[in-house]
Simulated assay, not measured.
Amino acid sequence: MRSVNGRRQADEEKSHTKQLEEEKGAHEEMMAPPVRWLLREISGAHGCNAKRQAAVKFQVVGDQGAEGRKAFFIEIEARPGQEDAVVQMLRDIRACVEDEPATGPWFAVRFSTTRFGIFEAFPDLAGRQAHVDGGGGDIFRDIERMNTILNVAARVHRVDVLMSKDRFAPL
């Protein structure tokens, strides 16, 4: 009787492992290509612990969507004592986007002492991808820096811009 229960338990563990691998694969497919590449590079070069550590420093959610105006809304939480370093990271990203012709309105915001955000808009999918491939994306791919200053994974939301008001009204 014991061997039957042992086999059943082993079968359940195999099934659970297979389910986790399928979920991981589906999750990676939802990510932008640079994120999938990054996760694969880290797991191959530095082992499982480094992969787990790096993978939690940013997460991309949302679909690419149909063609049209696009944006990123990024939630960032600083490690306690690293708030100034996060503000510097935001300055560094802003400096990069100044030279990106397809990055339009760009805002860095602070919600609390440790919680920050970025909202950045693009005219289309190609503009958003150019931003990912550019300097701002490079900053987020600096895993050592992100691991040092972020408390939890930065959450990068891909969003469609439905409507906007792009100018301040005259005073």
Rank of each mutant, 00 (worst) to 15 (best):
E13L: 11
S15Q: 09
S15L: 08
H16Y: 06
K18S: 07
K18W: 04
Q19V: 08
L20T: 06
L20S: 07
E21T: 00
E22A: 11
E22Q: 12
E22T: 10
E23T: 11
K24G: 01
G25F: 09
G25R: 14
A26M: 06
A26P: 00
E29W: 01
M30I: 01
M30W: 02
M31G: 10
A32H: 06
P33T: 10
P33Y: 07
P33D: 10
P34T: 03
P34S: 05
V35F: 11
V35P: 01
W37F: 13
L38C: 09
L38D: 05
L39D: 05
L39G: 08
R40H: 12
R40F: 03
E41V: 06
I42C: 06
I42K: 01
S43L: 07
S43Y: 05
G44V: 01
G44Y: 02
G44Q: 12
A45F: 04
A45K: 15
H46V: 00
C48A: 10
N49I: 08
N49R: 13
A50C: 11
A50P: 07
A50H: 10
K51P: 02
K51N: 14
R52L: 11
A54G: 13
A55R: 13
A55P: 02
V56Q: 12
K57R: 14
F58C: 07
Q59L: 15
Q59M: 14
V60S: 10
V60D: 09
G62K: 03
G62V: 02
G62W: 02
Q64I: 02
G65R: 06
G65N: 08
G65P: 09
A66L: 14
A66S: 14
E67Q: 11
E67F: 02
G68K: 09
G68V: 12
G68P: 11
K70I: 05
K70T: 04
K70R: 13
A71H: 04
A71T: 04
F72K: 03
F73Q: 05
E75Y: 10
I76Y: 03
E77K: 14
E77H: 06
E77V: 12
A78F: 04
A78R: 02
R79M: 08
R79W: 01
P80T: 09
G81P: 09
G81I: 07
Q82S: 03
Q82N: 00
D84V: 06
D84R: 12
D84G: 09
A85F: 00
A85P: 01
V86Q: 05
V86I: 11
V86A: 05
M89T: 01
L90R: 00
D92Y: 08
D92E: 15
R94M: 08
R94Q: 11
V97N: 02
V97A: 04
E98H: 13
D99H: 14
D99R: 11
E100L: 00
P101T: 05
A102M: 07
G104C: 13
P105A: 05
F107W: 05
V109L: 15
V109N: 12
F111T: 08
S112Q: 07
S112I: 05
T113D: 15
T114M: 10
R115F: 02
R115C: 05
R115D: 10
F116S: 03
F116P: 02
F116R: 02
I118L: 14
F119K: 03
A121D: 07
P123D: 11
D124A: 12
A126L: 15
R128I: 12
Q129W: 08
Q129H: 13
H131M: 07
V132A: 14
